[in-house]
Nucleic acid binder design. Structure first.
Lengths: 207, 207
DNA sequence: CTTTTTACATACATACATGCATGTTTGATT
DNA sequence: AATCAAACATGCATGTATGTATGTAAAAAG
């Protein structure tokens, strides 16, 4: 069956992205051929090359598809937790963990990024997108950490950037290990305790 | 030039492993062909298939080559820090971080595991080796955490397994992010602060 | 209603990577 | 010294992914 109208074309495009997301997450990016993606979406390879330039462009579109929702959620959170920088940091971490655990699309994408794609030279655009997003987020959170230090919520002896990098690394590591074997530990419980442990360690001793 | 004696054969094998380690770490596993590995080692593909069954067997040999040194170092550390379980945990984390930062072989292998290979079905043996090592190490460290709780060094409210999983995830995340861009933060400084922050958070409040 | 463009399908040309089979040169064995 | 086996090199056969060029039917534009 051939889709003709513009609306149908968008449906085909979305189905291609869905198929790619699923296959990449299941079998890995380089082990999945364009033909397999096309077949899973019920079309031929011609359809893919009509919508995307190549595999990298397809992956790029996958990432782009979640960028907006992620940005929206971030702004939404920022408005909810006004005033308490540490609570906001905590909420961000918990939100990411929850999203990875409960939303299949997020889980698949994070799984692809962490376990199912190789960071090689050809994939530089994806590499840079990942790094750029991380760095921007960290830079933003460093400001929160600074504010928290001013308010006496974080011990002055700690370097703000290192504190934030540590916190994000903890979250990354938790997702990394959980996605390796989801049966080995409970994500939300473990993450909850680990993040609060880390944040407790950031408090001044006297508090 | 052809190597004939058994000794020379071992040299060839080691050179093949070195070449594979370097190329895999630089360009990724699936983007590196057996021919490229052979050429980098100054031999032909025939030499590889004489020493190893296929690419997976080659990777397996790479991992096997570092298993013994790692095990030795672990036992050595265990004898150094007798008596204080938290110090031992801390020393292990710092040792891993230091090893990744300073030893090129360790760094290359960890880089391959974290960024340059896909966890797909065909790579199941490597997958299982990684998981098995992690789980064994965690199980062992949970005993240390239990001991620390008995001695009042870790707050009783914390679950030991979750505490250890959190600590290891922190270390994993730090290595993961540092290897993504080694210029973005200083590993030893950041890791030092982050690990001590986490361990400080594990202490009972009154201490 | 005609023309053009979209949205794909089909077909082909190219390029490798892999696995194996076989050849060759030496060290090792007896 | 003759034979065997190790340590590779070489060549081929196969499968498969990719990119592109072309075909085609329907929608959209005029």
């Amino acid at each position: 069956m051939v889709r003709r109208t513009k609306e149908d074309a968008l449906t085909t495009r979305a189905e291609l992205l869905d198929a790619a997301e699923r296959l990449f997450s299941e079998k890995g990016v380089s082990s999945t051929s364009m033909n397999q993606v096309a077949e899973a979406a019920g079309v031929t390879r011609g359809a893919i090359y009509h919508h995307f330039q190549n595999k990298l462009d397809l992956i790029d579109a996958l990432m782009e598809r979640v960028r907006l929702p992620v940005d929206e959620m971030r702004d939404e959170l920022a408005q909810t937790y006004q005033g308490d920088p540490v609570s906001l940091l905590r909420a961000r971490c918990f939100h990411i963990i929850g999203q990875v655990q409960d939303d299949p699309h997020t889980q698949a994408l994070v799984n692809i990024l962490l376990h199912k794609c190789e960071y090689v030279e050809d994939a530089l655009p994806i590499h840079l997108r990942h790094l750029g997003g991380r760095n921007a987020c960290i830079t933003e959170c460093v400001l929160l950490a600074d504010k928290a230090k001013e308010q006496g919520l974080i011990d002055e002896k700690y370097d703000s950037k290192a504190a934030v990098v540590g916190l994000f690394s903890l979250v990354d590591g938790l997702m990394y290990n959980w996605l390796l074997d989801k049966t080995y530990f409970d994500l939300s419980q473990t993450a909850s305790q680990a993040i609060d442990t880390y944040l407790a360690g950031l408090k001044p001793r006297g508090a």
